[in-house]
């Protein structure tokens, strides 16, 4: 999931001392240094944070969202299972 070769990064912000870093959202950046700067501009422009972490989205390993529930089978891990994963030429119908 890249934007012209810019990978997606997950952003974690510590809103103030004494609190842990919390997931704030994501953004695109060519590398970690720019990701940090973009995160600062985007997620803390109203002084919402004192510290930022950025992690490449692809480096995150996730458990099932809720182990108790069979509903949450990790099928959704595979984006290619979804029709929106495929580029279909315009005008092609009934796919």
């Amino acid at each position: 999931m890249t934007s012209d070769g810019w990978p997606l990064w997950e952003v974690f912000v510590r809103s103030r001392r004494g609190l842990s870093h919390t997931h704030a959202g994501s953004l695109h950046a060519p590398d970690a240094e720019m990701a940090l700067r973009n995160a600062r501009d985007l997620y803390t422009r109203r002084s919402e944070g004192v510290s930022i972490w950025v992690v490449p989205s692809t480096e995150i390993t996730a458990s099932s969202p809720d182990e108790k529930d069979p509903f949450f089978e990790p099928a959704a891990d595979k984006p290619y299972r979804h029709p929106t994963f495929y580029d279909i030429p315009e005008g092609v119908k009934h796919l």
Binding site: S3, A29, R37, N38, D41, L42, R45
Partner: peptide, 11 residues
């Protein structure tokens, strides 16, 4: 050139 940079330049 990219949305992230809109925010940076405006800052």
């Amino acid at each position: 050139p990219v949305l992230e940079e809109e925010v940076a330049l405006a800052n």
